[in-house]
Design a binder for these strands. Structure first.
Lengths: 190, 190, 190, 190
DNA sequence: GTGTAATCGAGACGGTACGTCCTGTCTTCGG
DNA sequence: CCGAAGACAGGACGTACCGTCTCGATTACAC
């Protein structure tokens, strides 16, 4: 038996699920997170409101599911092995993600919501697209050298400045990824 | 003289203004930003809804006005002249502000809203309590030494890690202000 | 069969409909038409405001639906066949209706509103409780004798004096139904 | 001393009074009675809201004062001495007044309000433009002949049918003043 | 002239209803 | 059991008008 045994009754409609996630994605770009409503998503997806509430509890949850894969992909870079190049590449991807990508807009919206709503906060800490991908880069980097600080603190030092810069509304053009990467590397060698 | 001559009509009630700001402050602590409503603020302040809309356009604007002074004060530290001590003290204040203070909760809420609402974004960039106070510390620090990078980028490097750490929902106990300050100083000397 | 097949979705709640009409009826008696509000009706009926707006557009429409049946009944008299007796009985019913009955108060309110609001005017002309019932009496009367004037003009001659007397605020005790009926009959014989 | 001795202080502005009455008149024609507001009148008249409330208590009161003179004039006909001609002329004036004149629209609005608001009812019964003018005609008519019924009841018989016809929303073109007058005269001779 | 007093405009105040919107739940029918 | 449709109670939205209030400015009469 390879298939999950179906309990009984009509199975969940994959079509409805996809329609909801697509609608959420589209609405985020079209009208923004704040203006998104459960009702709006349902109508855009041509899906009953009840169906949405059956499978998701917040619009945050929908958006998270809708954008997680995109976020993961946008922040996954090809590792070259050259530390400076890899760090720079990651920061470039991160800046683009946070400042220009729809998935990044979703992330910023969710992070904003997470400041107030602990359910959203848990969602993000369970699977943090930025923290997770950054750790992959750093873990690879640290395998060669012995490093004096914990991985998550290194992550904060690495991406914190970019994060602050963009979330506080500053112009992303003012950031120079290579400088930031160089600075981070020099710190590690201290 | 120096007093603004009253233009015409009944003057604005200072009592109403204060009542609204206090009500907003109280509600933030009691029920949180997301659950705050204009109606709720009006009722708590024993003020007409129209009176609120006459002077503020968003709950964000009210909260901003209500918490700006507190934020400013909490982030203003006594400068000792010792760079490491001053930076450490500021970071301690910042961490407490972001993680534990009501004014900090207001700030995080506003920052979250700013990701979606450009009106709130402007509000914050016009008078950013964190950026502004951090710059004061750094400006003072830089007067002695020539520094190779612009002030605002130095600010990002200085506070970015803390900022990321807390906003991404990590435990503030994991931060060691003195280490962060030391690291920042060592970077400056490169 | 003869039952309307239910189109789709949850069917309209008969309970809510009745609660609204009752609430409107009660409020008319308790506080009067002018003081009635959509909000007040909703609260009294323990019904959502939206539910009211879904089915009625004005308070006039609610009141009309609530009082139409009562009005019809109060103005329907048993025909005896004796012209003078029938006309007198109708005028007595009409005077009581206009001057003392809640349904009559509703009618007077609607007629007042109709002077300003064409939507209400249409409502009343589509189903005018007074005009309609009076015509029934007169039509029956006219079957025997040939009558030289149109039915609606005869109606105006018949009930116009009572109508004017009461709506202009005069004391209904000053009206003598039998005299009015006698006068009307003598006119018909001219 | 023929002038009321002025008590003290600034005297009432005749200009403001006229501006308010004109504004009320204009607004009645432009937007109708229901849409008229005290605020709207004040703004149209370029007058302070307080000034209005100082001298009038309802919009009904304003409108009454604004239209009373017009109503009086429109319903005052030149008496020829010929009963049929005079009655017909009056009914023609009445029909035009109720159906087409702005002053008549004001009257219908006030009468509608009077059904609900006793303050307005008193206003109208104190100085009823229709009842009063009709009585003038009838009183003159009755001076010659002995008449068996009270004046006010004769008034109701005379104008009631027109009154009902128009207020119930029927087309005034369906009324034939001369027929009504003839009918009324024949009744008097019974 | 110099009060004194009631007027005027302007416009803010606490209230309250408006009609709309969205929430999350429910009740139908049909697949 | 799922899903579409849509009605339900509830409650916030931002607006409008209510009638009252507090201003400064104006305009009369009385001293």
């Amino acid at each position: 038996m390879n298939k999950e045994t179906h309990p009984s009754g009509r199975p969940r409609s994959e079509q409805a699920r996809a329609a909801v996630l697509n609608a959420a994605d589209d609405l985020l770009v079209e009208i923004g997170y704040a203006a998104m409503t459960m009702k709006g998503i349902a109508e855009k997806a041509r899906v009953s409101r009840q169906t949405i509430y059956r499978w998701w509890s917040h619009k945050a949850e929908i958006l998270f599911e809708a954008s997680a894969a995109d976020a993961e992909e946008e922040l996954s870079i090809q590792l070259s092995g050259d530390p400076l190049a890899d760090l720079t590449a990651y920061l470039e991807a991160l800046i683009h993600f946070l400042a220009n990508s729809p998935a990044g807009a979703a992330y910023r919206a969710l992070l904003g919501e997470a400041q107030q709503d602990s359910a959203v906060a848990e969602l993000l800490s369970a699977k943090d697209p930025i923290g997770d991908t950054a750790q992959v880069i750093l873990k690879h980097l640290f395998e060669k050298n012995q490093v004096p600080i914990p991985l998550d603190q290194a992550t904060a030092l690495f991406i914190g400045p970019c994060f602050f810069w963009i979330l506080s509304g500053r112009d992303p053009a003012g950031l120079v990824p290579q400088e930031l990467a160089k600075n981070f590397l020099s710190y590690l060698q201290t």
